[in-house]
């Protein structure tokens, strides 16, 4: 599982840095490194580019996993360079950006757009498998998620756009309900195709979603 990111257009990065002239660049050693959007190489490329645009780079680092709490340690290790900057440019997913935002009282700016959480189906091929909808129906759909695999997120069967088993928006993509149908058929569970799914309850996921562990649940790890 990886958070899939893409570098923002360079003009947009510069736009965000409009009020900064000294920049510290942060990459991430986990997802963004695998995706080659925020690894060592990408960080040094962007550093150079920013220098070329007349910005002063006070330093850079690639945090092992930018979204987790160990990030605090990386921040203290780089304290001087970070203090010398007036903009922190983050080449990690938006969780990494927000993690840094907890620790720093400075402008923390995303260099990447966060797209989705990708499941590696086969090496190098990441697909969006779950939209964290809060009401999992995989048990009725042969383990294939129509909320994400169907372009329209339909629950009760295919729209009229299915063509030769493909989706109307993209002839390269399978229609979710063709996949679900075939799989249920193989498993001899076709009666599930007739199962009525009521409208999704948006209330089960009021935003922002928060999960708080009880003290005793936390203690089992320490």
């Amino acid at each position: 599982m990886k958070t899939i990111t893409r570098q923002k257009p360079y003009e947009e990065i510069l736009q965000q840095l409009k009020f900064c002239n000294r920049v510290f660049v942060v990459g991430c050693g986990t997802c963004a490194t695998v995706l080659q959007t925020g690894g060592i190489e990408q960080v040094s490329e962007l550093r150079e580019k920013l220098q070329g645009s007349g910005l002063l780079i006070t330093g850079s680092t690639v945090i092992p996993t930018a979204c987790d709490e160990m990030t605090a340690a990386s921040v203290s290790e780089n304290e001087a360079a970070i203090q010398g900057a007036n903009g922190i440019l983050v080449m990690a997913c938006a969780l990494g950006v927000q993690r840094l935002n907890f620790y720093l009282d400075k402008a923390v700016l995303p260099a990447l757009d966060t797209l989705f959480i990708g499941l590696e189906e086969h090496p190098g091929y990441y697909m969006e498998a779950c939209a964290q909808c809060g009401q999992c129906i995989l048990g009725y759909t042969a383990g294939i998620c129509p909320v994400t695999a169907c372009h329209k997120g339909l629950l009760n069967g295919p729209c009229g756009g299915t063509d030769k088993g493909k989706c109307e928006v993209d002839q390269e993509r399978d229609c979710a309900f063709t996949l679900i149908y075939n799989r249920l058929k193989e498993q001899d569970r076709l009666d599930l195709m007739r199962h009525y799914h009521p409208p999704r309850n948006a209330q089960v996921v009021p935003r922002p979603r928060v999960k708080i562990l009880e003290q005793k649940e936390m203690e089992q790890w320490v």
């Binding site: 069967g157 009229g160 299915t162 088993g165 149908y181 007739r194």
Partner: peptide, 16 residues
């Protein structure tokens, strides 16, 4: 529809 089975299934859901 091609394939027709999932589409006819939905037709039946609409009837229901």
């Amino acid at each position: 529809a091609d394939p027709w089975e999932p589409q006819y299934n939905k037709f039946e859901k609409k009837v229901d």
